[in-house]
Design a protein around this nucleic acid. Structure first.
Lengths: 322, 322
DNA sequence: GTGAAAGCGCTAACAC
DNA sequence: GTGTTAGCGCTTTCAC
């Protein structure tokens, strides 16, 4: 293993100069710096992260806790985190709680210990668990917290409603997700606001965020008298479409359906789903940026990044019947 | 931060005893061990991994390199790896090459340096790069290598062909994936074997492993005269189904389609896809086990785990036309 | 079975 | 601008 000593000997300088040349280039004369860098490169020197961590107190890695990596939503966020972290020279420890909230606290405790800070992408995580985290910065995604990245639910809901109203729909149903979901609560809030301005909207649920959940909502949607439905997420939309078709109705001719999250699933579904979304990868990137900005610095103030909502119009929405 | 010194002081023993009690319990008297453990617990002691790494030369983490975390196939494998690694008390550094073969080598070099060993899931570019890895164990998934986990392609192909033959299909097309894909090559081999025993099979492609790729194959499938198609993966199957329908044909009445990988996409598609697969999570678990077994030990012999292929029959396959 | 002591490779004061 | 030096917290000889 090549160490700073080897590089120092080969370059004819001290080990501190090597260390500085590589990690604080501004403190070293340009000539020395380049020579050291060249020799380090040539020798194949790779700094030992464990040693650097131990000495500097930084771990050089951040943690990402997700409920389910196989969920396209979290996978996309994870990609954004991984991408940006790499640009910052940080590793990413990924932990999957397998949708088990009880395990999350424990996982988080361990994660915190091997990272400089964590990103919690879990919708129903951790409240009182700030104590688990200690002084380390934590960024939450679509959740309340001092450091947070959220997508613009109100804007997204507005886009969806405007789109449907433009197609002539008057009564619109929302197929809600789990009661514990922060996002779901936000969307219901947006719906109430819309209702206050005279819109004819009805919130259904709570339904599980699955195909079965969407299918289970079909009856309620039909009975609601709505000609269009906005669902908690794309998977629920798929379930709703399927169940509605089994009842002999067509999408979008008899019922328009708007998914949420705009995962790649929306494009693959039949029919391809109109879906409210936001750039998921950007969510991951923003969360990482927020975390990195806090890593070296002071505790600092509350900081929330709001990412715009988008509407991808595909084939699951059409003119209102009759 | 609680260190071994704090625990030692509280327990009235030396730091070496604390260290041993916690990481080599057999070398310490039972009474002492339990007392130390209790006090460590009570004080909330968490060993500093960086220090342990530095001293012991182990990193306590393994690396996982995937081409695309948002691909349900790799996401499922990653979940298996994360799950099993946790059981072994190891962290997982996840790196996503974003389907960029050029980046793979560079990412791998870094990854190798912060882990005790790595798992390469379907590497696109790593062959001669064993030199990047040095002495560390590397497990490859669905690829050739001294340590490998592969799924039983021959068995999977056999299941698919038998299923289709049982439905009366005589001429069967395979919609192939990228030329660089190891799996694709294996499947073509399995097809050749089947052809040698008299089956009427035709391999098409290479097509990109995307919806567009599947759609692009529709013409060739039609012209092949086949009444059933097996596709490179589920996404390709979705594209094929879509394009075939646009030509006015029905699935499965006019064309049966078998996907591959049996990702959750298969169950969500319309119609739900019959798909060849294997337990993806188990792939991740097996790869982790293989790696962990090699971590402490000698170089050892070549070792390949073969996981059985399965066939999930859904609605995209039916009796042959006429 | 337990303790004392020597570092693992690096960074950050502190001198010069 | 560069060198010297003191550890970071832990594991692991080596004594006893």
């Amino acid at each position: 293993m090549v160490t700073v000593r080897d590089v120092a000997a080969a370059a004819g300088v001290s080990i501190s100069t090597v260390s500085r040349a590589l990690s604080a280039p501004g403190m070293v004369a340009a000539g020395t710096r380049d020579r050291v860098a060249a020799i380090a490169e040539q020798l194949g020197y790779q700094p030992n992260r464990a040693a650097a961590s131990l000495r500097a107190g930084r771990k050089g890695a951040l943690g990402l806790l997700v409920p389910d990596l196989a969920n396209p939503y979290f996978a996309a966020v994870a990609k954004g985190v991984a991408e940006r972290a790499r640009e910052h020279g940080l590793g990413v420890f990924v932990v999957d709680s397998d949708e088990d909230p009880a395990a999350e606290v424990d996982l988080l405790r361990h994660l915190v210990h091997q990272t400089d800070g964590v990103i919690l992408a879990s919708p129903r995580a951790i409240d009182a668990d700030v104590d688990v985290i200690g002084p380390r910065p934590v960024v939450v995604v679509n959740q309340d917290g001092p450091l947070a990245v959220v997508t613009d639910t109100d804007g997204g809901m507005r886009l969806a409603l405007e789109h449907l109203r433009g197609l002539g729909h008057r009564r619109i149903a929302y197929v809600g997700g789990p009661a514990s979901s922060w996002s779901d609560a936000r969307r219901r809030g947006a719906l109430r606001e819309a209702a206050a301005t005279g819109a004819d909207v009805v919130a259904l649920g709570h339904y599980p965020p699955t195909v079965a959940g969407g299918a289970a909502a079909a009856v309620a949607v039909a009975e609601s008298g709505a000609t269009a439905a906005i669902t908690f997420n794309d998977v629920v939309a798929v379930g709703l479409v399927r169940a509605v078709r089994e009842r002999g109705l067509r999408v979008p001719e008899d019922l328009s359906v708007v998914g949420w999250d705009d995962t790649y699933l929306a494009a693959l579904a039949s029919p391809p789903l109109t879906s409210v979304g936001s750039d998921l990868r950007e969510v991951g990137r923003s969360a990482t940026d927020l975390l990195v900005a806090r890593l070296g610095g002071a505790p600092g103030a509350r900081e929330v990044t709001v990412l715009p909502g988008t509407l991808s119009v595909r084939d699951s929405t059409g003119p209102a019947p009759r």
